[in-house]
Write a protein that binds this DNA or RNA. Structure first.
Lengths: 220, 220
DNA sequence: AAGCGGTCTGTGACGAAGTCACCGCCGAAT
DNA sequence: ATTCGGCGGTGACTTCGTCACAGACCGCTT
């Protein structure tokens, strides 16, 4: 039987009545994956519902020409909608999900997942909440790529990636993939930021020197 | 009691066991809305699950500067994910859903919807299938706005909007909103199509004259 | 220490797309 | 018939993506 201590981290699930948690206790399997593990890829069969306990998963799209754009990230407490929907609706997506850090997760086999969905209103609302959040993420991405300037998209992304810290280990190419643009465009924009004293640059490194104007630029 | 004849149109629901259909029979309410009715708008409270029986609903995003982009359309048999998720997760979206034609729909109050979700695996999988389809729609939009040329996006959209017929009643401004571009850009591209003999243009009208090259242009 | 291959970054030139300002035109309402 | 608001056309300019290429940096080998 699995240890369900990790459940305590997730209020939405932890308060589920004893009886409803039974399938969880019986069917949950712990997973540990190193950074760089593929969680979902188009065409791959997928047969489990996945809940991230610790670590980060990057979900992105990749087209035939090699163009890449990051859709969203999953952190602790998030479930992988892609695998869930592929599991339930057997629909194929053109997206990839890859771990960025070592990831600790719980996997529920399809049968266990279905059982929980049938039993627990709380679990259903947890799953729907996740759906809603991902949907909102995608809609935000659409707004950005369709109507926002490169300057604001890049500034915003630098801030969220830095997340408080001031140092990023990332290449221009990766940043371009983050915002769905081209490497040259990102290089030039970063240079502009550097000239203004907002960041300082190194090979594979971006240091935020002055977050305030970046925040302002991210706004519009 | 509502007439459930409409259910026959939807195999996914029609084959639900008698008992599971009970809440549906008891709680479903028929709705008829003229074209132009707002189904979902940010900030509006929404308290019903909506299933389209006949007609079309356009779901689009609108930002502060008036920029507009169509996300997807709902036809017969589709459910409005936006209202469903807003209902379940009380999350606010920046999107609008508006009827384009007179729409005939069924509405389930939240309680009835929750009851069905609890009882029927078939209903759950119907709802999840719809989620998955909308998610795929959004991801396709992202691919297009991020990486596809205006020529291919416009050609593709003209073909799907025409849907077999050769005549469209639509303005350049509306077409721009369809693909998330600017009116001038669409005007110029349409002129180019006209010079090549692919379409002929009139005020508020686009006639497809030669679909084959349009299909080719839509491809890449 | 020197060389080497691969990755990362910088740059100029160009084309595609978005923006701005302004125009004339059509058509419905008065 | 005139007016007025929505529609479409156009030129000038800016921003962004693409292409081609050069140089810099890094880790590795010799």
């Amino acid at each position: 039987m699995s240890n369900l201590d990790w459940l305590k981290q997730f209020p939405a699930l932890a308060t589920m009545p004893e009886g409803e948690r039974a399938p969880l206790a019986g069917g949950a399997m712990a997973m540990n994956a190193p950074a760089g593990t593929t969680v979902y890829a188009p065409g791959e069969p997928c047969n489990a519902f996945i809940l991230v306990i610790d670590g980060a998963v990057r979900v992105y799209q990749l087209d035939a020409d090699g163009n890449e754009i990051v859709l969203y990230r999953l952190g602790p407490g998030s479930i992988c909608i892609l695998t869930t929907l592929a599991l339930l609706a057997s629909d194929a997506y053109s997206a990839f999900a890859v771990t960025e850090t070592p990831v600790h997760a719980m996997a529920l086999p399809a049968a266990t997942f279905n059982d929980l969905m049938a039993r627990s209103a709380q679990f259903r609302s947890f799953v729907f909440g996740a759906q809603a959040a991902r949907m909102a993420d995608l809609m935000a991405v659409i707004q950005n790529v369709a109507f926002a300037s490169i300057e604001s998209r890049l500034a915003a992304r630098l801030l969220t990636l830095a997340g408080g810290g001031g140092e990023l280990s990332i290449t221009h190419q990766q940043l371009a993939a983050e915002i769905g643009s081209a490497r040259e465009v990102v290089s030039r924009q970063l240079k502009a930021f550097e000239r203004r004293g907002w960041v300082s640059l190194g090979r594979g490194r971006v240091e935020l020197r002055n977050a305030a104007p970046l925040r302002a630029a991210a706004g519009h």
